[in-house]
Amino acid sequence: MFNIFELGKNYGDNEVLKSITMRIDDGEVICIIGPSGSGKSTFLRCLNLLEVPTSGQIYYDGTLLDDKLDTKRLRREVGMVFQRFNLFPMFTVLKNVMYAPMHVNKMKKKEAEELARSLLAKVGLANKADAYPAQLSGGQQQRVAIARALAMQPKMLLFDEPTSALDPELVNEVLTVMRDLRKEGMSMVVVTHEMGFARDVSDRVIFMDKGYIVEEGAPVEIFNHPKEERTQQFLNRVLVGV
């Protein structure tokens, strides 16, 4: 789906991404791990052009992404879930989920509502359709956010630290939904600090540091036999107690 060549991103003199080259295939689940400030989120946000890369190329389905490309089409096909949920507070849960299908895809209200209700049932929140986001727990809000992204029937979902803003006991309900998506074959790129999830669920793990991909490979390789010293150091620090 994505072919990325020497992607770079600067904020002024600050080089956040230095040179990222990788491909992401259909149906793949990729977890990106690494210390904070390593450029993981920036990389993810470049994939749907929330951040405009300063150098390098991204090809999506064979098309070069540049300013002229239909960014809207890309964003319809590649959904995103944020760390802080970003639900629309003035809408009910149901309206949050059906809003984009209705107004972006011009779906009929009745169909959009059916779709939204079925997606809410899928994330286990059918009974919260009429609640407002502020009335839900963080874990419930994040599940609504996933349903909202799914409502656009995307080919791929990007997750930007989806459980980092959650209380520890609410993390699992979100990860369970993501595991279910994996079983259905959804392509996902997940920036995460949940090492257990990265190890069990992903096809490939990418370790990033200081704007580079330091190491990538199957989760077993990365977690059990990391080749790079930097990866070992990071894993030693975060895996204490796992």
């Binding site: 749907n48 929330l50 809207k72 964003r75 319809r76 959904g79 995103m80 944020f82 802080r84 970003n86 639900l87 629309f88 507070p89 003035m90 809003y99 984009a100 107004h103 972006v104 895809n105 909202r148 992204a149 656009m152």
Partner: peptide
């Protein structure tokens, strides 16, 4: 919060749609 704008953009709304459908109603409120 800029997250509101980003959430609308990634759902496929354009800049002005995002402003008028999502940001302005909250701002005016």
């Amino acid at each position: 919060d800029n997250g509101q704008t980003e959430a609308a953009l990634v759902l496929g709304f354009g800049r002005y749609e995002t402003l008028f459908r999502i940001v302005m109603p909250q701002a005016l409120r």
